[in-house]
């Protein structure tokens, strides 16, 4: 326990002192504000353009925006959020392999599984905090401008999107224990994601895949029911556990530290 807390402290200190922490904090705040901002600005932009459209003979319908528009913007910005988080942390192990800083830690009697676990806890914590920040800011603005009650199953939708992020992070941690350079880590995570995306094109299989969780945005407009996602949720959670266990397994047998 003492080793884990010492290692987590070291990771947090690193994030603070290298500026990672403040950078992500500000960025996530900006992302949170952008969702309602986009929704709010849409009619304004259309207004401006409608003049030129009508000159060209096109008629523009009046658009109405509400909390749903803002939540849809949240879904669109979500991939950027998770990609930036993955990019920020893809070197969590590879930077240490390259400098050899882990050798000192391991020869001090640190159990290897504790290194993987501590790193996972820190990245999960960053994701949790960042996600709550973005979600909270979007929710707050939506409540101020419009009404969040017009969308249904908001809480379940939030959990689904959160879980999808956890799944990608666990996959990245697993890949970091397999590969030594951060470019191969990012490429392999991207490759696996693409593979799963392609498999998801096959009918009937898609709802068993982790990425199906992102379809839960349909729930907001009352399309489908929560129980449609039960397989994807269970499989994602299992897959996260398997990824972490596999990461511990690979890391314990790694000799190129």
């Amino acid at each position: 326990m003492k080793q884990i807390s010492a290692f987590i402290q070291k990771e947090l200190l690193e994030c603070m002192r290298t500026g990672k922490c403040i950078f992500m904090l500000i960025l996530f705040v900006i992302f949170g504000i952008m969702n309602p901002a986009f929704a709010k600005l849409t009619p304004w932009l259309i207004d401006i353009m409608s003049d030129s459209f009508s000159n060209m003979g096109l008629s523009v319908e009046k658009v109405t925006v509400d909390a749903l528009t803002s939540w849809m913007q949240f879904c669109k910005n979500y991939p950027f959020t998770i990609i930036i988080l993955l990019l920020m942390f893809c070197n969590t192990l590879s930077a240490e392999y390259q400098t050899g800083t882990l050798i000192n830690v391991i020869t001090k009697g640190m159990n290897r599984w504790k290194i993987v676990l501590s790193k996972s806890i820190v990245i999960f914590a960053f994701w949790t905090a960042g996600y709550l920040l973005i979600f909270g800011i979007t929710y707050g603005y939506n409540a101020y401008f419009w009404d969040n009650n017009i969308v249904s199953c908001l809480a379940f939708f939030a959990v689904c999107y959160y879980l999808a992020g956890i799944w990608l992070i666990s996959l990245m941690i697993f890949m970091s224990t397999v590969f030594n350079s951060n470019s191969s880590v990012i490429l392999s995570v991207g490759g696996i994601f693409l593979g799963i995306y392609l498999i998801g094109m096959l009918p009937k299989i898609d709802k068993y895949l982790p990425w199906y969780l992102l379809d839960s945005s349909k729930l907001l407009i009352n399309d489908g029911s929560i129980s449609d996602y039960r397989f994807a949720v269970v499989i994602t959670i299992l897959s996260v556990i398997i990824n972490i266990v596999a990461a511990v397994f690979c890391f314990s047998r790694k000799s190129t530290l």
Binding site: I30, A37, Y144
Partner: peptide
């Protein structure tokens, strides 16, 4: 009338982006 409506997010957005900009340049 839009301006006053967008101020609630325009001001924090500008502040956040400025902070991020200064922080990046300093880094």
């Amino acid at each position: 009338k839009y301006i006053s409506e967008i101020l609630p997010f325009l001001i924090p957005l500008i502040i956040a982006e400025l902070v991020l900009f200064v922080f990046t340049i300093r880094h």
